[in-house]
Amino acid sequence: MLRGRASSATDASFVIGRVEIKARRFAGGPTGPLLPPGVVKVVLTPQGREFEVERAKRVADLLQQLDITPGTVLVIRGDQLLTEDARLSTSDEIELRSVVSGG
């Protein structure tokens, strides 16, 4: 079930189950897709799998929700690396790039 924390910058709302979601537009401006607040887009490389993760305020939350051991991925936002305490926002697109190699 989708859940989200109400945001003061909301511009739409919808209900899923019994939960009212107040959402704001995702990256791309007024024509962009609607996502609930606190939802972060994540791509896992090199696997290429994509997720939308809810209620991940910080990188540490994100890794915990995806059950990824800290230190086994680079957390990349744009051209920057993020540390575990870095805050995330709804418009973020995060790449989690595995650092594990070899066989």
């Binding site: 490389t45 090199p46 790039r97 595995s98 594990v100 190699s101 070899g102 066989g103």
Partner: peptide, 16 residues
Amino acid sequence: VEECPNAAGATQLTYK
């Protein structure tokens, strides 16, 4: 970034 396809299931990855 991708890994050697032959590394999948390697014991060393379990140890890592």
